[in-house]
Structures are given as structure tokens and as C-alpha cells.
């Protein structure tokens, strides 16, 4: 069975790959495929966030007895990322290449920085702190209902 770190890092890579496809398609003004890729990208990212927000973060917060701190910052960054995604959606509808590419540049750094914090710090901590419940946590995340 994989670790929490491996499981969630793999999802980051999938989202990254959708995102670079999306950027290429917008740059080439392939609007139809861009719409389709955005749909997949949005769904994957949202599902990943909800796995963390509904399962992993509460489990960590339970261990520490506090909802302040690292998980709070991660939730906040999810908010920033969601807000950027909804603007990208708008740009796709308006076929606004320049604004989209300006935004996607920002988005790329934002999300890479966020992923780096999670992969290098938060996930390693999760594997340590939740060692005994690792399989259960992954199973719960696998079955999260995405709203």
C-alpha cells in the first residue's frame, strides 16, 4: 500500500499534466479542446482538494487539537487557487488569450509553490503523525463524495 505522500503527490502530477495541456491549447487557440481539458483539470483539482479538506486535514487537526496552523494555511491557498480557476473559466468563455496566459503564469507558480509545501512538508508529517491509520485515511479519501 502506498503512503499518503505518494498517493496525493501522484494526484498533483495528474493535475499538472492537464494544466500544461490546457495552457498549450489556449496558446494555440484550440478552444474546444481547451474547454474539455479545463473540465477534466477542474474536476481533478476539486476532487483532490476535497480529499484533503474532508479527510486529511480534519485527521491532522484532530491529532493536534487545533484547526489553526498549517492546515488552515493550506485551506486558504485552496481558496486562492479556486478563485484563480474560476477566472480561468471566465477567460475561456470570453476567449481572452492574453488574460488567460497572464493568469496561468501566476497560477502555475501559485500551485507549484502550494504543492511543494504539501509534498515536502505536510504529507511527510501526515505519514508520520497518522502512521497507524494510513491505509484507512487513503481509503476514506478514495471514497470522498465530491460536491
Amino acid at each position: 500500500m502506498s503512503t499518503i505522500k505518494e498517493y496525493l503527490t501522484h494526484e498533483h502530477k495528474e493535475c499538472d499534466s492537464f494544466f500544461s495541456d490546457l495552457e498549450t491549447q489556449v496558446a494555440n487557440r484550440e478552444w474546444e479542446s481547451a474547454q474539455e481539458t479545463f473540465g477534466k483539470f477542474f474536476h481533478e483539482t476539486e476532487a483532490h482538494f476535497q480529499k484533503e479538506e474532508k479527510v486529511l486535514f480534519p485527521a491532522l487537526e484532530e491529532m493536534t487539537g487545533s484547526s489553526e496552523g498549517p492546515t488552515q494555511v493550506m485551506r486558504m491557498e485552496h481558496g486562492q487557487i479556486r478563485s484563480a480557476m474560476s477566472q480561468m473559466d471566465q477567460d475561456l468563455k470570453n476567449k481572452d488569450v492574453d488574460h488567460f496566459l497572464g493568469l496561468s503564469e501566476t497560477f502555475n507558480i501559485l500551485i507549484q509553490q502550494h504543492n511543494m509545501k504539501e509534498e515536502q512538508i505536510l504529507y511527510s508529517m501526515s505519514d508520520n503523525a497518522l502512521m497507524g491509520r494510513k491505509d484507512q485515511i487513503i481509503d476514506l479519501m478514495e471514497h470522498v463524495e465530491v460536491e
Binding site: M63, G69, P70, I121, M125, A129
Partner: peptide, 8 residues
């Protein structure tokens, strides 16, 4: 566990 000086 979370170490005390950790801050994301």
C-alpha cells in the same frame, strides 16, 4: 507530530 517551529 507538528514541530513547534513549523509554519506553512
Amino acid at each position: 507530530m507538528f514541530s513547534s517551529n513549523l509554519s506553512l
